[in-house]
């Protein structure tokens, strides 16, 4: 397992949070009329991952160049934690030619082959693809791993169970990461899932499953490190379910009227909690908190500026890239 770098993990979480917060602002800033999801410089659905930073940061801290991730419709935190270029990603979200996908993918379909990162808007369907990437790593004789990320709601999809079985029966270097944020859009887990813990489901496939109950980056870091080490060593797949927190709505514009614990979400925000823990350990000062925040602000502002100043694609470009 890599050496724990607390400051780097804190910094990464702050960077992601700043990104999601600014995208939220920008998303709503020019929605006119405000109800029109297709209006503004960032059109379409927008699923933000604020509150779920510990999952991405704790896992990605162990990944090296060449390791793959398939993320779901809420992908930004894993993309940023996995070194996807912030400028190109932002330009993609703004639908610009400089974007990761030249404006063809958008926020739910980000592809960065250099970092073996992809996401899919169809929940659980990234899991089989991750199995295939892991299969390729295994066949090539590398020690690379594939991380398949999905939400707890997606764990009721057939693709989830097919993938667990496939990874187990072929001993693939896959780490299934389930972000349990309690809510599948508006349906709570206990109303949708037989069995409270998806770590239990892993047991049914002969695969170790761990549930990280606290939304704590160091707990995620340790569990993910053990699982990734295991996969690299050729010991096969693992499953980690992380009980995390959806700080914002399912998508931007979601009033979350269905959510009784809404008033307590800010108390459960993992970033101030981690800052306090690091301050208590004496590894993070007030000055550092301020400078880390300032760095994140500047990086995100620059990415948004880059996106906004990039050209939009021409309509006829829609016909390009159907085939290689």
């Amino acid at each position: 397992m890599g050496e724990l770098d607390r400051l780097a993990m804190y910094q990464q979480m702050v960077r992601i949070r700043q990104y999601e917060s600014r995208i939220m602002q920008e998303y709503h800033a020019d929605k006119s009329p405000a109800w029109d999801i297709g209006a503004g410089l960032i059109p379409g659905e927008m699923h933000l991952a604020a509150g779920q930073e510990p999952a991405a940061v704790g896992v990605c801290a162990h990944l090296k160049k060449g390791d793959a991730i398939t993320a779901p419709h809420r992908p930004h935190h894993f993309a940023l934690a996995h070194r996807v270029d912030m400028n190109k990603m932002t330009a993609e979200i703004y639908g610009r030619t400089t974007g990761l996908c030249k404006g063809k993918g958008g926020h739910m379909h980000l592809f960065d082959p250099e970092n073996h990162f992809s996401c899919s808007g169809i929940i659980a369907q990234g899991l089989p693809v991750a199995c295939g990437q892991a299969m390729a790593f295994q066949r090539k004789g590398t020690d690379h791993v594939a991380v398949a990320v999905t939400g707890e709601g997606a764990a009721n999809q057939g693709a989830f169970h097919e993938s667990l079985n496939l990874a187990a029966v072929w001993n693939l270097p896959v780490i299934f990461v389930i972000e349990d944020n309690d809510w599948a859009i508006s349906v709570p887990k206990d109303a949708s899932t037989a069995g409270a813990s998806n770590a239990d489901r892993a047991a049914g496939y002969g695969m170790p499953g761990v549930r990280v109950e606290d939304n704590d980056v160091e707990a995620v870091y340790e569990a993910a490190g053990a699982a990734i080490d295991r996969a690299r060593a050729g010991d096969g797949p693992s499953l980690i379910e992380i009980h995390t927190l959806r700080l914002f709505g399912h998508f931007e514009g979601d009033a979350q009227a269905y959510r009784p614990e809404l008033e307590t979400v800010n108390e459960r925000d993992p970033i101030p909690q981690y800052a306090a823990a690091l301050q208590e350990l004496g590894v993070l000062s007030e000055d550092q908190i301020a400078s880390i925040q300032a760095d994140a602000d500047a990086e995100v502002d620059a990415a948004i500026e880059f996106a906004k100043s990039s050209p939009e694609p021409a309509p006829e470009d829609a016909l390009l890239h159907v085939f290689a």
């Binding site: 082959p113 369907q125 693809v129 295939g132 990437q133 299969m135 390729a136 790593f137 594939a146």
Partner: peptide, 11 residues
């Protein structure tokens, strides 16, 4: 899906 993932990785 595994075929797709393997193809994406160059197989």
């Amino acid at each position: 899906g595994a075929g797709i993932g393997a193809a994406v990785e160059g197989l």
